[in-house]
Design a protein around this nucleic acid. Sequence first.
DNA 1: TTGGACTAAGTCAACGTTGACGTAACGTGG
DNA 2: CCACGTTACGTCAACGTTGACTTAGTCCAA
Lengths: 333, 333
Amino acid sequence: MPSGPTLHDVAALAGVSPRTVSRVVNDEAGFGEATRLRVLEAIEKVGYRPNMLARALITRRTGTLGLVVPQMVDPFFAELVDGVQAAAKASGRTMIIAKHDDDLTEFDSILETLSSFAVDGAIVYSPRGERATLFKHALRGLPTVAFGMEISGTNLGSVLWDVSRGAELGVGHLVRIGRTKLVMLSHTGAGDSLLLPRRETAFRHTLQSAGLEFSEARVVRKDPTIEGGRAAMDAVLAAGTPVDGVFAYNDAMAIGALQALAVAGLRVPDDVALVGFNDIAMCSALVPALTSVRLDRAAIGREAVALLDRMRSGPDHHPPVYVDVELIVRQSA
Amino acid sequence: MPSGPTLHDVAALAGVSPRTVSRVVNDEAGFGEATRLRVLEAIEKVGYRPNMLARALITRRTGTLGLVVPQMVDPFFAELVDGVQAAAKASGRTMIIAKHDDDLTEFDSILETLSSFAVDGAIVYSPRGERATLFKHALRGLPTVAFGMEISGTNLGSVLWDVSRGAELGVGHLVRIGRTKLVMLSHTGAGDSLLLPRRETAFRHTLQSAGLEFSEARVVRKDPTIEGGRAAMDAVLAAGTPVDGVFAYNDAMAIGALQALAVAGLRVPDDVALVGFNDIAMCSALVPALTSVRLDRAAIGREAVALLDRMRSGPDHHPPVYVDVELIVRQSA
DNA sequence: TTGGACTAAGTCAACGTTGACGTAACGTGG
DNA sequence: CCACGTTACGTCAACGTTGACTTAGTCCAA
């Protein structure tokens, strides 16, 4: 692995000092036009590229952000990654993406690695909402923005979406279109302790404020996957629970419900209306297209990057940032 | 952003020279047991973490690999990323992931960035199979493994999967289960020029060698998406082309076909058997579960990392590596 | 003409680590 | 007890860049 040409090589060729080349490269002031041209020509000729390692060693800035998510196979996270990366790119930064598989030890070591590479900040989806690790690295000097959990402090901020309101929107829509026998397909939720209960609570509240019956039998909990959704829907049908509207924990479960309903010969939305959560891209490609609560991933990414910027220049404490949710009505409800 | 404790801080506390601390940290030889313990204790006490930037500046190694893909929202790529990352982790390395959105300029600048961060190697899915950019950066010293295209040279290798064989497997299976009126849902294929024709060619060859009719009307080309697959299948049905077996360009198109067939009241696999390509995770969650040609993403990742290792220590030229494909038979065919 | 302000450079050290080399102390075989 | 190898360190420079400071020259107003 050759090291490539350095400032010195360029300087020698252009007949100036390395410091001057550095100034030209970084577009600082303090050089003449003629010099600038000679230097640029020399840079071109030797194919010089700045060594980020050396630069970062001094400046302590890399122009790089770290993004840490549990996984990327779930389209929700894939699209979240996309949104954050778009925002990072828009602000001229490179992204390092890593995943922790919900493993706390790995999460810790990823943050360690990011720190040792001197990323300018980290944007993370903490495994099971874990907080201590976040505080630890933030205190050591890693500016961090957490997703989906309310947390703030020195070097630590958060971006959230209002899950309760999203659930209200979804369930409210089912009520508004005249559905009265609602069921929620929820998830067993070992992790995600922060966000899960809100959806169920909102489900109950919305039902009650609409004067509709609520009972524990109207919440079925399975894995938050297609198979889980199918199993949950099957369980509802097998139990003979009357149902004309379904609110799913996420889109994957909604897709599973769609399958189960099709197999059972029930039409969507005629017999049963169906609302998902997250609005992954696939929602619009389903038959019938899935009504879902949208989280604007692009906005989330922008807010996270913007918050990181504010944290770097502003005072210690920054309040959590909330990103709007929105109901996208399609064919399924 | 504080810089954190350095070797010097540890050295001062332990009463030794920084060089000795460095030796302990890197587990080189040349220090006594008592010293080792004192140093470790001091490291613990001050919370020392090595600065990767400084280390990499000298050693020219970062223990980091770069992975560059067109995008991550397509489950195929998401799972590919997963496979590569697992392999990198298994060999003790960190991954930097970036996406280029099929933009050649961005691809170039990503490779530039990776070089300037001194990654130990890059694993890339080149936009539209572009080669020149790969050669350029490889020659400049970035060891690179390309996916899905046959290329090799100094610092440059490739990992491929045999698309033709995959297509033969898929189509052959349809023939073997007695289907005689086959259709291929292909894609319009601006990009992917290398891999696309193979599938169609294999489709034709397999048909012909089974003594079945082939005509251009039996290949319909649309976008490689769910919607594209649905449109393609609709087109086949609308044209009245007799069909009892469908081979799709990828799983997304197969899912679209599944939808179109359901809407048309045709049963899968009874009326029409269906085979996808890639075997994304969702295949097994569909109803009916989708038979698909599997590319082993974990194996692909392992081979790519292994090839990179061989390239770093071996001679200049390494032949392309082929990863096996396999037909996963489920309910749809 | 002097002095001050400004411009266009150059010099040197430092960032935190490791490579190359030096050296004092100790052990060991003859 | 001397020569020699080995162990356990220490010293110093270097990696490629930028921060802080210096310097030489120019321009202009007083």
